[in-house]
Design a binder for these strands. Structure first.
Lengths: 333, 333
DNA sequence: ATGAAAGCGCTAACAT
DNA sequence: ATGTTAGCGCTTTCAT
């Protein structure tokens, strides 16, 4: 291991001078010193020992993106965005799959023990009073898609605009008789999706009966029941809007396997986008939400929070989503 | 922040005694000391400063799983397995999405700078001479699915057995006229899959013409061409084996959209398993490979490597895969 | 412009 | 069984 001392020795300067130079700030050093020191450092392949530095500065230069699992379709995109913002800022982003039990403790320990400087939490944390713990320990946290209370800064998707876009798209295609399949799961999205969707349709003069507003698992595990209900409506709706991509895919498959063709007999639109939209035929028309941007914003917000003193609670809202037109919706005109 | 000193003060012992007790080893302390110290520690909510500890011990207690992206279908499972093994061993696992440029440097720096003790590399690293760098810097590395050379310990899936199982399953169902779609990508799997598949069929007295052995992108982006070729064969094969799950799903969809029913007219089998197998109809029969176990083994191997002196190169082979029977294959009998 | 020196919190060898 | 002590490598204040 190459130490500051070794570089200092080779360059012929004191260790403290070397330290200053290698931090790259605007300190006053002679050009010669600067040159000889950087040369010596690269020559020796010097790499600062982050544990020693951190012990002094109480900073790690790392942040953690905490996830409950990795198999949610949006996590890769969020992570990629977060990673890009982090590396732009010269900090390291680690993804940490936190355990089911003791998640709050485990996550917060990461910061309290000096493994990271802050946390981006990409999940509702059901139990454990995470945010109280974080506040109490003064651990910087940015939440994703959380807005029910004012406990922490949060970066949220504009789901209101997203579901409005979904509704408008179907209305634009001439659909009037529409079913909506929301997610069972208790989440932020959830509270808005139904409302925003229905309100937007209402503005277009379209009202949905209660029997046209349904619920299913986020991953579409129980779409069979929903399809049964929809096909039992009289008349059968001309379009179905789903609150996830998985639902849309599985609804489409279920319709087709029951002999109901998509989109000729019924149109299906999803919410969120991923590669799987293209894996199926018909490929799935859906609302693409800016998850990449969400990851970026979360990192930037966290870094501000870590630096600046004034902790601003409340939401940062991402750009609106966009309809990605594929094959699963048809125009009625 | 609560320091060792604070605990020592409250408990009425010396800092070094506290240190020994809190490390939990078999050191000789009076029962009273042990009790009073642990009590004081919990009372104060003491958490060891890992940077200070690491500075002394030159260990971080963390390892990194390095991935090029997160959207590969097997990564969540591998990660979950790795996580379980890591937490069993009391170490922290971070997932690190390394940058495209300078990946080798970035990964190795993580260890050299004291952010982690070792690396599990879940990718071929095309450029950058990663393994030379790692060896030269004495950074512990375990590779996943790498076996072409003897540069580092590796944990590999038993793809030979996996593709043999795939072949045997189709043969068991009575298929004789079979097409095989391998992956374009240059990977370990690739070198074995075709061979193992064909050899197994040969053992069953089935030989495939060259025109029955095809290639496509791993993610199935170009299955359309492949479907065209397969449907141009005379006679059309009764079954198609694919070297990935995405290929199998997209082949199935493409067949169906061309009016060729799966499995009644043609059977399709995939390789690897994930939730998406169930998203489509017919659901996909496939070979489930033990990715979870692979993650576990990789962590254990890495920890051995970090502890034990004798670095054993070469492969650790996972359990054979298992056929998951769903709807996309039918028996010919 | 450069150097001297203190100390971050911890561990471990050694002394008692 | 418990305490003393010397650092790990770095940053930073203060002196020169």
């Amino acid at each position: 291991m190459v130490r500051l001392k070794d570089v200092a020795h080779l360059a012929g300067y004191d260790i403290s001078t070397v330290s200053k130079v290698l931090q790259g700030g605007n300190i006053r050093v002679s050009a010669e010193a600067r040159e000889r020191i950087t040369k010596a450092a690269t020559e020796l392949g010097y790499r600062p020992n982050l544990m020693a530095r951190g012990l002094r500065t109480r900073k790690t230069g790392a942040i953690v993106l905490g996830l409950p699992r990795l198999d949610h379709p949006m996590y890769p995109t969020i992570t990629a965005g977060a990673e890009s913002a982090a590396s732009e800022l010269g900090i390291v982003l680690f993804v940490y799959k936190f355990p089911e039990d003791g998640a709050a403790e485990a996550l917060i320990n990461l910061v309290l023990q000096g493994r990271a400087d802050g946390i981006i939490l990409a999940a509702e944390m059901a139990n454990g009073g995470f945010h109280e713990l974080a506040k109490q320990s003064d651990v910087p946290v940015v939440s994703l898609n959380r807005s029910d209370d004012q406990v922490a800064p949060s970066v949220v998707l504009d789901d209101e605009a997203g579901f409005a876009a979904q509704a408008n798209y179907l209305a634009d295609l001439g659909h009037r008789d529409i079913a909506f399949v929301g997610a069972n799961e208790e989440s932020r999205s959830n509270r808005f999706c139904e409302q925003a969707f229905l309100r937007t349709l209402a503005q277009r003069g379209i009202s949905l009966g209660n029997d046209h507003v349904l619920r299913a698992e986020f991953d579409g595990a129980d779409v069979e029941d929903v399809v049964g209900i929809i096909l039992g409506l009289n008349p059968i709706p001309t379009a179905v809007a789903a609150a996830s991509l998985a639902m849309a895919i599985r609804l489409t498959r279920k319709f087709e396997s029951k002999g109901v063709r998509v989109p000729s007999q019924i149109s299906v639109i999803g919410y969120h986008d991923a590669a799987q939209s293209e894996w199926v035929s018909p490929s799935i028309t859906t609302v693409s939400m800016p998850s990449y941007q969400q990851g970026q914003l979360a990192v930037r917000r966290l870094v501000e929070l870590m630096q600046g003193g004034d902790v601003q609670l409340g939401e940062t809202v991402c750009s609106p989503g966009e309809i990605v037109i594929r094959e699963s919706c048809r125009s009625l005109d």
